[in-house]
Computed example of a mutant assay.
Amino acid sequence: MTGPGILFAATEPRWSDYEAPLRAALEAAGVTGYRLSPDLPAAEVDYIVYAPNSSVQDFSVFPRLKAVLNLWAGVENVAPNPTLTVPLARMVDEGLTRGMIEWVTGMVLRHHLGLDAVLARQSGDWLPVVPPLARNRPVGVLGLGALGKACAGALATLGFPVTGWSRSPKTIPGIATRHGEAGLAETLSGARILVLLLPLTGATRDLLDARTLALLPRGAVIVNPGRGPLIVDEDLIGALDSGQIGHATLDVFREEPLPRDHPFWAHPGVTVSPHVASETRADTASEVIAENVRRGEAGEPYLHLVDRGAGY
């Protein structure tokens, strides 16, 4: 019996990164007789390993398509596609999660310890500045999905009092959780450092604007490895100029790469990071993809399915 046809639909450099790990993971998962290629004929495709920036945008041309397996955690650029009528799975894997935890904790500690000022002051002046202990620096985390929950837990382990917010109620041991409009205001008002890990949906786009930025304690720091359009750029710059926001470390932007003439580049209160907070690692991502192919062939439920109505 012929196994499944798997189309790898991503930009060309990614195929060379993924081919060997994907084959190894498929074989380890017990998937046999498969055909894996970036050039598989549409009539032979059962699964698409997918990056939203690939040339594949019309899914209706694949008559036997069973599922689309996203290589990215974000699905806002594929979930609304009207031609996509089969299950869509987002990427949730250990490598991506660990990478995000390390980036977020590193940036939060950087701001908590005041490392920018320490490293900039190398003039010979002995000016000790002692930061508060982590237990006295409240952190807010907006978004309590897989990445938000993991990062909130890591920060709490370091001693930070963490309040997490999500649109719907969630319970996480060791984390104070809030939801809804009132919960958002409460989370913002107490956060000396705010971490954004929300998905991008109609309800979260432009969530941080002049009104909500004003709810943060004066001088609060924002760390955004989530989605660029969560923040209104012009309102953030205004809040930085007024001192309402002390600094913003941004890894994601409305337009990427960030245009050279964007004011973020020159603003002293902004750190631009080139969307590196958490890359999908080919070895660990391949294991997740292979497991979903195995499940599809066995008639078992897929992992990490996207709620198309919610958009994530």
Results as ranks from 00 to 15, higher is better:
residue 27 E to N: 12
residue 81 N to I: 06
residue 9 A to P: 01
residue 59 F to Y: 15
residue 137 R to K: 11
residue 223 V to Q: 00
residue 266 A to Q: 15
residue 26 L to V: 00
residue 11 T to E: 15
residue 308 R to E: 11
residue 1 M to H: 13
residue 37 S to I: 14
residue 97 T to W: 01
residue 216 L to E: 07
residue 304 H to Q: 13
residue 267 H to S: 05
residue 79 A to D: 00
residue 228 G to N: 09
residue 48 I to N: 02
residue 285 A to G: 14
residue 291 E to D: 13
residue 111 H to E: 13
residue 134 A to T: 14
residue 27 E to H: 12
residue 301 P to E: 11
residue 100 M to G: 01
residue 229 P to T: 07
residue 138 P to D: 02
residue 186 E to K: 10
residue 32 T to Y: 03
residue 119 L to T: 12
residue 13 P to A: 10
residue 39 D to H: 14
residue 102 E to G: 03
residue 34 Y to Q: 05
residue 163 T to R: 13
residue 54 S to F: 08
residue 13 P to R: 10
residue 238 G to C: 07
residue 114 G to Y: 06
residue 179 H to R: 12
residue 157 T to D: 12
residue 193 I to K: 02
residue 71 L to G: 11
residue 239 A to P: 04
residue 245 I to C: 09
residue 89 A to G: 07
residue 299 G to Q: 05
residue 124 G to P: 05
residue 224 N to G: 08
residue 116 D to I: 04
residue 157 T to Q: 11
residue 258 L to V: 11
residue 276 V to D: 01
residue 68 V to G: 05
residue 165 W to Y: 12
residue 201 T to H: 04
residue 124 G to Q: 09
residue 299 G to T: 06
residue 139 V to L: 07
residue 310 A to E: 15
residue 1 M to V: 14
residue 306 V to I: 12
residue 188 L to V: 09
residue 233 D to E: 15
residue 219 G to V: 09
residue 248 A to Y: 04
residue 227 R to C: 08
residue 63 P to R: 08
residue 1 M to E: 13
residue 255 E to P: 00
residue 232 V to M: 01
residue 8 F to P: 04
residue 29 A to W: 07
residue 116 D to P: 01
residue 61 V to M: 14
residue 205 R to W: 04
residue 304 H to C: 13
residue 300 E to I: 03
residue 269 G to K: 05
residue 85 T to C: 07
residue 158 L to A: 04
residue 292 N to F: 03
residue 99 G to P: 03
residue 293 V to E: 07
residue 73 A to Q: 04
residue 42 A to E: 14
residue 297 E to S: 06
residue 277 A to C: 07
residue 144 L to A: 05
residue 260 R to K: 14
residue 304 H to W: 15
residue 51 A to N: 13
residue 299 G to D: 08
residue 279 E to A: 13
residue 194 L to T: 11
residue 87 P to M: 10
